[in-house]
């Protein structure tokens, strides 16, 4: 509690002002019926940080992301966005899901501009250009490849200039090459725009490649919180990279071995 308040003060003193995306999570518990999914999570994510959440399936990482997005409410505890307790939907956040979730009955450009007020077409075209899909505005989503659909979903997420981008394993279903391309794209856009990112991934190397900080969640609790102090762009074959990936992977697997 004390730590989170001081972090908040620090941010305010830093004068981040209007564009912020500072998340404080206080003592969050979440149960679905008798099943306890999250058991006491405290976490502070300063503005602009790229955080990766790793952990095995069913550890509660997706639930945590949904709480931050405001798609679910915690059983106990609260989420503060820029010091304000989160009620209902988090309007500063945009979520990218495992599947692109494009509306199949809208053309690519209309999907990108979904829910945008006023004259949104120029900004939607610009967003498509940013993800490398100029010229596909008038296509139906059905004719796009999986990677292209996720690019459209990324453009749709970024067109409103969100302060917080929540990525729920968006690259999980892509082939290896497309995946690396998407990782580079996300990293580039994050560096240009400076929003806060929370990325859920199964892939430890992906986490270490992209994130400032890797958090491991195990059976509803944070079991590892590691800063990644490797200069960008990161090389997968560097010694630091390998050591850190190994360490995180060991923690993930070690916990797996303990639970029968």
């Amino acid at each position: 509690m004390a730590a989170s308040v001081s972090a908040l003060n620090h941010d305010v003193q830093g004068g981040v002002g209007s564009l912020s995306g500072h998340i404080v999570i206080e003592g969050i518990h979440k149960s679905f019926g008798a099943e306890q999914v999250l058991r006491g999570i405290d976490l502070t994510i300063p503005h602009g940080q790229f955080v990766a959440l790793v952990g095995k399936s069913g550890c509660g990482k997706s639930t945590l992301l949904r709480l931050i997005a405001g798609l679910d409410t915690p059983t106990e505890g609260r989420v503060l966005i820029d010091g304000e307790p989160l009620k209902n939907q988090n309007s500063d956040a945009r979520v990218m899901f495992q599947d692109a979730r494009l509306l199949p009955w809208k053309k690519v450009l209309d999907n990108v501009g979904l829910g945008r007020p006023g004259k949104w077409k120029p900004e939607a075209s610009k967003a498509l250009k940013d993800v490398g899909l100029s010229g596909r505005e008038a296509d139906w989503p059905a004719v796009l490849s999986g990677g292209q659909r996720q690019r459209v979903a990324l453009a749709r997420a970024l067109v409103s200039r969100p302060r917080l981008l929540l990525l729920d394993e968006p690259l999980g279903a892509l082939d290896a090459l497309t995946r690396i391309e998407m990782q580079r794209l996300i990293e580039r856009l994050w560096r240009e725009r400076g929003f806060t990112v929370l990325l859920i991934t199964h892939d430890v190397e992906e986490a270490v490649t992209l994130a400032d900080r890797v958090i491991l969640i195990d059976t509803g609790k944070i079991s590892l919180d590691e800063l990644v102090d490797i200069p960008r762009p990161r090389q997968r074959n560097s010694a630091n990279f390998g050591d850190l990936s190994e360490k995180i992977l060991e923690s993930v697997l070690g916990k797996v071995r303990e639970t029968p």
């Binding site: 997005a69 798609l71 939907q89 309007s91 956040a93 945009r94 979520v95 899901f97 599947d99 979730r101 509306l103 809208k106 979904l114 829910g115 749709r156």
Partner: peptide, 19 residues
């Protein structure tokens, strides 16, 4: 899943119905 996505993007009542 599409409904949930639409609510993340701020679609409500009429716009949710039409879109």
């Amino acid at each position: 899943a599409l409904r949930e996505m639409a609510s993340v993007y701020g679609l409500k009542s009429w716009s949710l119905f039409w879109n």
